[in-house]
């Protein structure tokens, strides 16, 4: 693919340059094609072709291994055949828990959104406190360091005991899982604000509120976003596990339910969706970080 593109294009681009005197209009179009479209095509090819090849190979190996009689897992062709309905109609709702994948995923995403949003706000606030105040750091940091090592699911029984319902408990698990990296990274970012910026704000006599949003937040933004990115990844890890235990609508429960009814193909499909959405969540936060911290790079 790439080879043919590389070989044919220069040849077809050369003649119009000579003909440009007669026909001035096509020239910019060609130039546009050469400078803008061609590199994009090349970039597309280099970023898409290798993973596509690897995926095809893996699917082939999987197919060969699971085709044999006595294989415990279905081959990709079976997965495809079994889950056709789920793939092509994600929106059905037959009442109760018999819903399309869209509803399960959106229920999980809503929980993550809520728990993560609370964690982001509290995490940045607590991180700022810890980063700014020596005493808050001395008092809180050891506690944070211990609590952050508690595995997410270990919080679930406690949350169920406190909230007596699955839904808020799941949100709490998301919150408590994702808040630690946000706190810790924010605190590091605040502590690393260069003395120069503090001097500038002192000379300008910025008040604490102005200092917070004019100096602290932009200066610590790269660190804060590192925390937010780790946090979103952990949230998505935790939600699937928590939902398996809690039940109700949600992708975690969907997987557990599929296992109980021995629909292995559905589990595989769900895992693919979980992976893709986790990847997308990470990309969204990363893109947001790039937009927000565009000018923050130290020079």
């Amino acid at each position: 693919m790439t080879m043919t593109v590389l070989k044919t294009e220069p040849a077809s681009v050369l003649p119009p340059a000579a003909a440009a005197k007669v026909l001035p209009l096509p020239k910019p179009e060609r130039a546009f094609f050469k400078t803008s479209v061609l590199p994009k095509l090349k970039g597309f090819a280099t970023s898409v072709v290798p993973p596509a090849v690897v995926i095809c190979l893996l699917l082939a190996v999987w197919e060969i291994l699971c085709r044999k009689a006595g294989a415990t897992l279905p081959p990709p062709s079976r997965v495809n055949a079994d889950t056709r309905e789920l793939i092509f109609d994600p929106f059905f709702d037959r009442g109760g828990l018999d819903k399309g994948l869209f509803w399960h995923l959106s229920a999980s995403l809503q929980r993550v959104a809520l728990g993560y949003a609370i964690a982001a706000v509290c995490g940045v606030a607590l991180g700022t406190l810890v980063g700014q105040s020596m005493w808050a750091m001395r008092g809180l940091d050891p506690i944070f360091q211990v609590l952050r090592t508690v595995p997410p699911l270990a919080w679930l029984p406690l949350a169920l005991a406190a909230f007596r319902q699955g839904h808020p408990s799941a949100i709490f698990v998301i919150f408590i899982t994702s808040i630690w990296p946000i706190i810790i990274n924010t605190a590091v970012g605040i502590r690393n604000i260069p003395q120069d910026y503090r001097n500038v704000s002192a000379v300008l006599r910025l008040n604490p509120i102005e200092f917070f949003y004019k100096i602290m937040v932009p200066s610590a933004a790269p660190y804060i976003f590192t925390g937010l990115r780790i946090g979103i990844g952990l949230s998505w890890l935790a939600i699937v596990a928590a939902e398996m235990l809690i039940g109700g609508v949600g992708i975690g429960f969907f997987i557990w339910d599929a296992w109980n009814s021995s629909h292995i193909s559905e589990i595989i499909l769900a895992l693919i969706y979980v992976g893709i959405i986790g990847f997308l969540l990470d990309r969204i936060v990363a893109t947001l970080a790039n937009i927000v911290t565009r000018g923050t790079a130290y020079n």
Partner: peptide, 20 residues
């Protein structure tokens, strides 16, 4: 205490990199 009546030009410029 510091104040704008004694403005400082620092050795390493100290411009805020996220502002134009």
């Amino acid at each position: 205490s510091p104040g704008p009546d004694r403005a400082v030009v620092f050795q390493n410029h100290s411009l805020l990199p996220w502002l134009t």
